[in-house]
Amino acid sequence: MLRALDLFGAEWRKLWGNRRVSGCALVVWPVMALGASLGLLLLNVLEARLRTVQLLSWTDVALSVWDVQSNLIGRVAVLAVAATLFAGEYQWRTWKNIVPRRPRVQLMAAKFAVLGFAILLTFIVMSVVMTVGFGVVNLVVGAPYGPDPTLNVIGDFLTRYSIRAGLSFVDTILIGAVVALLAMRARSVLAGAFFGLVVLLIDEALILILGTLSLLFNNESWLELLRLRFTYNLSNLSAILQGGGPLAPVPFPVTMNASGTGFTPPRWRPTRWRSRR
């Protein structure tokens, strides 16, 4: 166990010691939260009318950070860190120093752990900065910043916060796995991050692509393939864990298969295709 922690510590030091990456991909988030708080404070001081729109609760502010993490911009941080962790050793030709010292599986596991915890720590710090910062703004302008921190409120908040943080960790590891494969294949930090971004964009664009195919073939079951997106699966898991039940893969009705398992393979309909032409 201690040796595993040693390995984690080594990777942790490497990541935070790389100021360019840790600064641009990690430290920047809490700094942005501080900037947003100061900006909001300045606007409120300068413009009295804004004071009427302070309707945020501290719980929503704290939780909103995880929406930032799970959108495309937030995931760029994951891409940058993952590409650095996994391709950096090849780019700097330091892999030959470390591989004889530990089995490859342990080295990889430590990199995944550092990736997950670094992202988690970054966004936890960001949420604290933002929650406190917005609180100060509300205090200065005299706006309410509820709900009152009763035991029930705090318990409910911590549950929701833990779920969102846990899902963020899983999201990070999933994206990290994709980037690790690409980065180690390319042996370049930049190429790893770039190809990772391409995969994320494809994941986002699948709604459009499969929607178009569905219309083209007049077959809604194409949309069922959206269930294969990891973004959908994470959202689905999030919805289930937060008690809302499973999500439909797209925000409009689709044909469900009879078993209710959720996936219907697309069917080729040559007759319709020909008739449409």
């Binding site: 040693d6 080594a10 030091r13 700097w92 330091t94 030959k96 120093n97 010292r101 530990r102």
Partner: peptide, 24 residues
């Protein structure tokens, strides 16, 4: 192996610390 390569953004001491931790 071949030329000596290190993490250029870390100090010499920190490089050795990192390698020591990896070695356990």
């Amino acid at each position: 192996v071949e030329d000596a390569t290190f993490y250029a953004f870390l100090s010499g001491r920190r490089n050795l610390e990192v390698l020591a931790r990896i070695s356990g």
